[in-house]
């Protein structure tokens, strides 16, 4: 398990003890998760995992849905970092974070219903506020996986 700039697995797991206050420091390219699935012999279009919520004042005190969605997006961010660190032939699919993202996609697809046989996901770097070419922006394309 690695993450950009943190070589020790323990340092990564204990990073809450070493605060980083660089919040939202630069827009840049955002890692985004896309998925598609094979349903009734047809592949769906690629869909972006982009949870959106409505604002509610009550969520000031209790906000598990949004917090979980933000944590899931963090997994995608970590996977993107680890893909960059893995260049040189290492097997990305062996990473814990890859397996977690695969589970995340399975969970999203489960909510779609239907008779899904297979699925596939990709991680793309999407530029903020600029045109996006999915093929050029892809940093990871999973094989077609049985559902």
């Amino acid at each position: 398990m690695t993450s950009r700039g943190v070589d020790s697995p323990w340092l990564f797991l204990l990073r809450s003890l070493f605060p980083n206050w660089r919040f939202y420091h630069a827009p840049g390219d955002s890692p985004r998760l896309y998925f598609r699935y094979l349903d009734a012999g047809l592949w769906s279009d690629w869909q972006q995992m982009m949870p959106r919520f409505k604002r509610r004042l009550f969520n000031l005190l209790f906000n598990p849905g949004v917090n979980l969605a933000l944590t899931e997006q963090n997994l995608v961010d970590h996977l993107a970092n680890d893909i960059a660190d893995c260049q040189g032939g290492n097997d990305v699919s062996a990473l814990v974070v890859y397996q977690m993202v695969e589970r995340l996609v399975r969970q999203i697809i489960a909510a779609e219903g239907g008779h899904i046989k297979q699925f596939q996901f990709r991680v793309c770097l999407v530029p903020s506020g600029a045109a996006f070419d999915m093929e050029a922006g892809t940093i990871l394309l999973s094989p077609c996986l049985d559902y």
Binding site: L14, P19, N74
Partner: peptide
């Protein structure tokens, strides 16, 4: 306990708020 919970969430659950909670507990 907070360290253990955060390790279970792979090091952090909510980023900055985890960091600041650990600062106050420290």
């Amino acid at each position: 306990g907070n360290v253990a919970i955060l390790i279970r969430w792979r090091g952090a659950f909510n980023g900055g708020s985890d960091f600041m909670t650990m600062v106050v507990l420290t």
